[in-house]
């Protein structure tokens, strides 16, 4: 479903702030694969997701989604194929707009927007049902402004919006990092439920090794802009945090030094 080949990206080239963020990152995902992405700070995890999403053009390499070369497409055109959830709960939704309006915006992702009504009556009924499944009490607040919701509710809504139209690829960029542990686990459960329900191909960046191991059927580790570890199948199922730390040292030749990840064991 995703073929990202040899992606290169350098920020602020030629300046004192030059930063090589992607140095030949390559990843192929088959349909239905749920891939978790881990790595230290500055390893290029979010950069990789942003490259796939088309936030900026890559310096080198190519990106194919479902056989379509999207390397030259701007962000809003690629959106047709992608569902996205961001780290900051404020980013994924329009705060000044109602819940149903936000969902209707997402339902028209990649479609031509004309002069028909922004939200139809029929849609509202569907949204009511969808929100009910989340079990957050949002179904009775369809016309409430999204800005009134809590961070967890907003992330859950963003998730629903990302999957309201089945995306070819779901990109989750540390989408539970800003939430408290209880809410984070609830949002992760919703994530897992939606991915399984729709049989989605997904990438999830996380700082939590346990989550990376527990969720999904594929795991990659990034370091210095490259994918350095690629685990799937049975090996992924039997993986432990100790294995991961050990593997990291083996591949990168350095010790794993990210406190958050070690502490969040």
């Amino acid at each position: 479903m995703l073929n990202a080949f040899n992606l290169q990206k350098t920020f602020n080239p030629g300046t004192i702030n030059e930063k090589v963020a992607l140095a030949g990152a390559t990843l192929n995902l088959a349909e239905g694969e749920f891939c978790t992405v881990i790595g230290g700070n500055g390893a290029g995890k979010s950069t990789f997701l942003n490259a796939v999403a088309g936030v900026w053009p890559v310096d080198g390499g190519s990106i194919e989604i479902d056989g379509i070369d999207v390397t030259g497409l701007p962000e809003y055109k690629r959106a047709k194929y992608l569902g996205r959830v961001f780290q900051d709960p404020m980013t994924g939704t329009a705060a000044n707009m109602q819940i149903d309006e936000n969902m209707a915006l997402a339902a028209r992702r990649g479609k031509c927007r004309g002069l028909g009504w922004g939200v139809t009556k029929k849609e509202r009924a569907t949204y009511h049902e969808m929100l009910k499944e989340l079990d957050l009490g949002l179904e009775d607040r369809l016309t409430a402004k999204v800005g009134l919701l809590s961070g967890g509710q907003r992330q859950a809504l963003t998730l629903l919006m990302a999957t309201i139209q089945k995306p070819k690829l779901l990109l989750l960029d540390e989408h539970t990092a800003a939430l408290d542990p209880k809410t984070a686990s609830k949002v992760l459960d919703i994530t897992d439920m939606l991915i399984k329900e729709h049989g989605l191909t997904a990438m999830m960046v996380t700082h939590n090794m346990r989550d990376a191991i527990n969720y999904g059927n594929r795991l990659i580790m990034m370091n210095e802009g490259r994918v350095i570890l690629n685990i799937s199948g049975e090996e992924k199922k039997n993986l432990t945090i100790e294995d991961l730390l050990h593997k990291f040292e083996e591949v990168s030749g350095t010790e794993f030094t990210n406190d958050t990840e070690i502490l969040s064991k």
Binding site: A53, E75, Y76, K77, A79, K80, L82, R84, F86, M90, T91, G92, T93, A94, A95, N96, M97, E101, A104, L105, A106, R108, R109, G110, K111, R113, G114, L115, G116, W117, G118, V119, M161
Partner: peptide, 28 residues
């Protein structure tokens, strides 16, 4: 009427949250 339509909603979303709008396929 206009700000209730699909285009009008897209325009409002652009004003509120350009990042989200792009992610929803809106040409900001």
């Amino acid at each position: 009427w206009f700000f209730g339509t699909e285009v009008g909603s897209a325009l409002r979303a652009t004003g509120t949250n350009p990042a989200m709008s792009k992610a929803q396929g809106i040409n900001v």
